[in-house]
Design a protein around this nucleic acid. Structure first.
Lengths: 335, 335
DNA sequence: GCATTCTGTGAGAGCGCTCTCACAAAGAGA
DNA sequence: TCTCTTTGTGAGAGCGCTCTCACAGAATGC
């Protein structure tokens, strides 16, 4: 065995009394090996505690072996917002049994030491899925420069970013929600938006506005949230101050919607009798909420698997087109 | 450039009119290169969109490049329990600026297709930190067989598992909690335990029992939880049924404690006036809970960084001893 | 002026693996 | 019996990189 280092295939072969090629065949389950040789190699492997060197193997097979899921948000948020767990779960599922690992890269992208940017530039992974991209992170630029195959989950904010992405028709979803409130007879319909530096926030606001306008109602009842529970509660409070007789509310995420309902309760409004509330995401929280949340379905798992699919194709050198999924409304108790 | 493939260092060198060695020096920021050569190489790199081949680099530098954080729990739980986010955050922080990636491997270890075991045996990472190990997962055995450097965060359940681990003195922590309840004047002190197939669950129960016994009180008020909110609520309900005049409660995790307080409220008990409650973890939820939770500090970040430290040493071939951290009690409002 | 350092560079080995190719031995068909 | 497959095996190339070593040329010391 080579000095004091980990055993190599060479060592295994020598111990088993076969060539390196045959040892390799056994390791990789090639059927054309005599049983005796196979047994000898297997024995040598376990005696030596041999583990193949990934780098060497990868160098010759040229297989990609990891993709990054990039989330430019604090770890706090990543772990508290079910959207991210859903995405990560979806990506993991979609990768399925491919021998590839998913690396979660999170944190504020412009956080002093450029950790995230350095990581991405370092070429530690073979591809990237960017999940919660904001206007001011220059992620798409970094990725374009490094030519790292990447797919955005959610349309990139910058118009000029020519990056493949998968998105859901957020505007249509929000319109669905607003139309539902209109059809229910609501006349003073407000909205708690998502962050305005994200395309999802913008699009959901636009969809709401378009539908409310179409119904001939006022589109002034807008307060900005940030997709967190606290932000949603605060926005709801402001909305109620400005318009105490609010009777319909579209909240751009379920997590915010749940806390909006809480806030409405504190203010003495019943849901849906006084104020009808529609959320967005159809997250697990939607069914557990009291009253259960009427919400727009965000097909997170589908988006994730679609993103993986696109990414694998990009990594294959293909040129791919953005993919837009459709949404629907789930009517429960809150509206 | 070699046919249609990604550019190699050779290509960069050729384009810059220098040798491969010099190109490599520029890429790796070796100072001993003429400015002209450096500029030429840099230009070639960006023109060609060159990215170093990780596998090739790794093959020669022999540097480890990824460690797995193994969590034998459903993705649901991993993303809902703050313990895991704390751990993952701690590990990420501890890895710091080392050029190493953290791979999150989660899922039920005996889930039909042995995904987790296959992954671990596949040698996809250079080391593993096992986080929420249960009695029946044979993780320590798999890891021993593959000789993958690994460290348990939380003492492995099996006595015979001679694996390095870092743990906190769970029994002492639980005793602290129980003693606090005793000192407060509680006389009928119950406990909602963690899962009995985890050492943390066992040890916290043992600590509680020892302290309660020492005070000359009954140790029969025990109901088993599973570290989830729902499980904690159910256990509390059972406890209350069996002993309506319960006046002190030690709950083996904050997440369960918060839902226990909710359950006590539903049953018309005031906390801490009727029932004093002590949690375990000192998670963010502890301060946000109403009333704020008196709880045992679980130094998760410290454990994580300690685990990383041990793992790096194991990966270096060192033999390391288990590490046991101490806990303390934070008194807030609930007890 | 000559020996000595320093500086920048290139040639080339070699990391551990897979995989192609050649080839011996054994079996099958004539 | 002689060819023609089939089967199992080994020799050896080569993946893309880093790093040691040797060496030319400039700078320095005496």
């Amino acid at each position: 065995m080579s000095t004091r280092n980990a055993p190599t295939l060479e060592d295994v072969a020598a111990r088993a009394g076969v060539s390196r090629a045959t040892a390799s065949r056994v390791i990789n389950a090639d059927p054309r090996v005599r049983d005796a040789a196979r047994a000898a190699v297997s024995a040598a492997v376990s005696e030596l505690g041999y583990r193949p060197n990934r780098a060497a193997r990868r160098l010759v097979t040229r297989a990609a072996d990891s993709i990054a899921v990039v989330v430019p948000e604090s770890d706090e948020r990543v772990f508290s917002d079910p959207f991210f767990s859903g995405t990560l779960k979806g990506v993991t599922r979609a990768i399925g049994s491919l021998p590839m690992q998913v690396v979660l890269v999170m944190g504020n992208p412009d956080d002093g030491d450029h950790r995230m940017e350095r990581y991405l530039r370092g070429g530690h992974t073979d591809g990237a899925i960017v999940v919660s991209h904001h206007q001011n992170d220059n992620l798409w630029r970094v990725l374009a420069e490094t030519r790292l195959p990447s797919v955005f989950l959610g349309r990139p904010y910058a118009e000029e970013a020519r990056v493949p992405y998968v998105d859901v028709d957020n505007a249509a979803g929000a319109a669905l929600a607003a139309e539902h409130l209109v059809a229910r007879g609501c006349r003073r319909i407000g909205t708690v938006t998502g962050p305005m530096d994200m395309s999802a926030g913008q699009d959901r606001l636009a969809g709401w506005k378009q539908a409310v306008e179409q119904a001939g109602l006022e589109v002034t009842l807008v307060e900005h949230g940030d997709f967190t529970a606290a932000g949603g509660a605060a926005a709801t409070r402001r909305l109620l101050e400005g318009c105490p007789d609010l009777d319909g509310l579209f909240v751009a995420s379920d997590q915010m919607a749940v806390s909006a309902i809480g806030e409405l309760g504190v203010a003495g409004r019943r849901v849906p009798d006084d104020v009808a509330v529609v959320g967005y995401d159809d997250s697990p929280a939607a069914t557990m909420s009291r009253p259960a949340l009427t919400t727009v379905v965000n097909p997170i798992a589908e988006m994730a698997s679609c993103a993986v699919d696109l990414l694998l194709r990009v990594m294959d050198g293909e040129t791919v087109e953005p993919e837009i999924l459709t949404t629907s409304l789930v009517v429960r108790e809150s509206a």
